[in-house]
Amino acid sequence: MSVADICFSSVTMPWIINSILLDNQVISITACSLQMYGFMAFTSSEFLLLSAMAYDRYIAICDPLHYLLIMNKRFCTGFAAGCWFLGFADTFPHAWYTLRACYCGSNKLNHFFCDLTALLKMSCSETHDIERITYVEGAFLGFGPFVLTVTSYAFIINTILKIQSTEGRAKAFSTCSSHLLIVVIFYGTTLSMYMRPTSTFSLEVNKMITLVYVMIIPLINPVVYSLRNRELKKALKMVFQLPIMN
């Protein structure tokens, strides 16, 4: 998860900073396609990793006695490798399309990095095929993991509500609350970006949405997940004189 955050930020942010500081806003179509491919591949991988984490939380809370048996090292390694492989395979058709597409009229990309939606707006080639591919892949690797995550949390919440003690329920909710927050933000922004017809795109709105998952999500991920760390809570108490939460 941390590697995915670092990589998909590193694909875009250095070029954005360079274009601002050096006023160098020119990029070749090959470099643009590679940037788009890297960004979408790491984003897709993170989608799948979030679902894998939801399944992990489901086993931990709903079937704790079998957790170590099910979530063993071999299974987790294969699960994570599968997420990365599918994430990179999923976005290959988009990169291939942008490399082969024709671009006419203005060569100014209405975005702060090479995003698929902006490239489709510039393209003079037929975009219906790549849109269909986007919807099909989005259904399997976008809504599919989302449904899996929601289903896992439905069982998790149902199990938590059956816990008799208030302290037990609080600890169980604490275990998955940080992950659920990231899921809502990340899935909400990315699905709203790519699962719409090109004719309904508003690039100005899309650029604002993109900022959320390009800059804000990687920034808050370490903070959100670290809030459960006891050492961090002690450090926060020392700095801000806050009470430590269990």
Rank of each mutant, 00 (worst) to 15 (best):
M215R: 04
P93G: 10
S152N: 14
N107C: 09
F186T: 01
I157F: 04
L180Q: 03
L34P: 00
P218D: 02
K108T: 13
E46P: 00
F140R: 08
I6N: 10
I216F: 15
K121H: 15
F240S: 01
M215N: 08
E167L: 11
R196W: 02
P64V: 11
L68A: 09
T43L: 11
S123A: 13
I61G: 02
I27E: 09
L69Y: 13
Y135A: 05
F79K: 15
S44C: 15
G87I: 06
Q164V: 09
W84Q: 02
V11M: 14
N158W: 04
F146G: 01
C83Y: 00
L181M: 13
P64S: 09
I70G: 02
M36C: 10
L227T: 08
F47T: 01
Q164G: 06
F240L: 14
Y213E: 02
N221S: 14
P197H: 10
T175M: 12
C104E: 15
M208Q: 12
L141S: 11
L236G: 03
M238A: 13
L116K: 02
Q25T: 14
L48R: 11
V214M: 12
V224Y: 03
F42D: 00
L109D: 00
L109R: 06
M193L: 15
P222V: 08
G138L: 07
S44M: 14
V239L: 15
N229M: 02
R196D: 06
T198R: 04
E46T: 12
F146E: 02
I20L: 13
A118H: 06
S106R: 07
M122G: 07
V11H: 03
F39E: 07
P222G: 08
T189H: 03
K234W: 02
N246E: 15
F140E: 02
I70S: 05
H128S: 14
P64A: 09
T43M: 09
T175Q: 13
A95T: 05
S125T: 09
N72D: 14
M245V: 11
G87Y: 01
T43W: 01
C176E: 03
R57Y: 05
I27D: 05
F42K: 05
M122W: 10
F173D: 01
C32M: 00
N18E: 09
E167F: 07
S19V: 07
I156A: 00
L21E: 04
A31D: 15
V147K: 09
K73P: 00
T151V: 12
N206Y: 11
Y55K: 12
A52H: 02
V183S: 05
V239R: 13
I220D: 06
A154Y: 09
N18A: 07
I157T: 08
S45D: 02
